[in-house]
């Protein structure tokens, strides 16, 4: 049974959101401090790649798998498959911008911060998301956000990106039918 879906942003609009976030990141960086983009697996990684391309300047991109840092590990049926953390550069003294598609409860971001801080001591950690949908459960907010969307707890906001998904779009997915 498919859930009700409505499109919030199409391909062009999503491009505009990315532009906006990229501009914010570039403007917000600390002069003279190396900037690193770290995508949170899975969809944070292609977003980080696109942001890096927009920012230019050879900004390196890494990926963090937060599985091992989740606070709900073991509560689901099976352990998630590990995809691995891949940050092949120094985080010590760098400005790390964590990149994710949607900011919701903030728990994923909390796990990602712990994972990154286990790799070293960054000068500053910031958070960039495409969509902030509210519903935060931790004192975490986005430093850079493409858009703010109001969503009820039963709804899901999904960012779909090529090449993982067939199209670039942001959709609101309704509650599961009873």
């Amino acid at each position: 049974m498919a859930r009700a879906e409505s499109r919030l942003f199409g391909s062009d609009e999503l491009g505009a959101l990315l532009d906006r976030v990229a501009r914010q990141v570039a403007e917000g960086r600390i002069p003279g401090v190396p900037l690193l983009l770290v995508g949170i697996r899975t969809r944070g990684v292609p977003i980080a790649d696109r942001l890096a391309a927009l920012i230019g300047d050879g900004v390196p991109v890494g990926a963090v798998d937060i599985t091992l840092y989740r606070d709900d590990l073991g509560l689901q049926g099976h352990w998630p498959v590990l995809k691995g953390t891949d940050i092949p550069f120094e985080v010590d003294g760098a400005e790390v911008v964590l990149v994710d598609d949607v900011l919701h409860t903030g728990r994923t971001v909390r796990a990602a911060m712990n994972a990154v801080c286990d790799l070293g001591r960054p000068a500053r950690v910031r958070l960039a998301v495409l969509v902030d949908r509210g519903g935060h459960e931790l004192p975490i907010r986005a430093d850079y956000a493409g858009a703010a969307v109001a969503a009820s707890p039963e709804e899901r906001i999904e960012v779909r990106l090529r090449p993982i998904d067939p199209d670039d779009e942001v959709v609101r997915v309704g509650p599961a039918p009873c």
Partner: peptide
């Protein structure tokens, strides 16, 4: 390979 060789899993 990390400086802090530990994860909380």
């Amino acid at each position: 390979d990390r400086p802090r060789k530990k994860v909380p899993a």
